[in-house]
């Protein structure tokens, strides 16, 4: 079930992964994970606002990859499809089932998504197998004043320029992210966060005078829907044909 993992201890998770090794017959691997981001595009979002971010930080992790097919391949796979000729629209109706965990990285870390180059998170504990989906957990961090993520920037439309700030304070679990690769040996995992998807449907005209995105208003709700949108996360798993020693 979806939210159980939020409350599972690292020890239990390691046991889970160990159990899955027994289930799948996979071999242990140590897989580096890096994270980068794509800034919002120069064009307007769906509400006509052009968004520039001056701060984008989030407390990332734990991160896990599973054998279960994602419910929606979504934009991330569409983007890869444009590059590699794939197609989207695989779905398991109504019920995403993650299946066995194949890789996990358990140490939450605050990431600057505006960093000019991808940030190396560390090495995930992993096993060989058919990777199909991922789950990304975001939890409150003291480094972010107790928030899960912090966004700041400006939004421009028709000569109007608004500065804004936003935070999310509750834990977030983004599940069923497409992440497909058959890992048989050495591998690397790169995650790209599409910040444009996060802000795509925010109507900044509905911001209050504080210029802060207030929960249960359209701007904040649209941001949260963007954060929960698995299309905002593109995994590229590079594999080596040669088995890892």
């Amino acid at each position: 079930m979806r939210r159980l993992h939020l409350h599972v201890t690292p020890i239990a998770l390691s046991l889970t992964l160990a159990a899955c090794v027994g289930d799948t017959g996979g071999r242990y691997l140590s897989v580096p994970i890096s994270v980068g981001a794509q800034a919002p595009g120069a064009g307007p979002n769906a509400k006509g606002w052009t968004v520039q971010l001056t701060r984008a930080e989030l407390n990332m992790g734990p991160l896990r990859l599973y054998e279960g097919e994602p419910l929606f391949a979504g934009l991330a796979e569409d983007m890869l499809g444009l590059l590699f000729g794939g197609r989207s629209a695989f779905a398991h109706p109504g019920h995403y089932e993650e299946g066995a965990a194949l890789a996990e990285w358990l140490q939450p870390r605050v990431i600057d998504l505006l960093s000019p180059s991808p940030v190396l998170l560390g090495d995930a504990d992993a096993v060989t197998g058919a990777y199909r989906s991922a789950q990304l957990d975001l939890n409150p961090s003291p480094e972010l004043g107790g928030a899960v993520l912090v966004l700041q920037g400006t939004a421009d439309r028709d000569g109007t320029s608004l500065s804004f700030s936003a935070t999310a304070s509750s834990a977030i679990s983004v599940q069923g992210i497409a992440a497909s690769a058959d890992v048989q040996g050495a591998a690397e995992i790169n995650l790209t966060v599409d910040l444009g998807t996060w802000v795509e449907n925010i109507d900044f005209e509905l911001l209050g005078p504080s210029r802060t995105l207030v929960p249960e208003t359209q701007p904040h709700s649209a941001l949260m829907r963007g954060v929960f949108n698995t299309s905002a996360y593109a995994f590229v798993i590079s594999t080596s044909a040669a088995p890892q020693d």
Binding site: G74, G94, S221, R225, A232
Partner: peptide
Amino acid sequence: ATLPSDQYGTGGDGRVLDLAHFIRDQTRS
């Protein structure tokens, strides 16, 4: 996005932005 944030989650289908398309998408299940 005008509905309560804990309702009508769309998972990874970011093309679903309104209630009509939400219900239409449910026909896939």
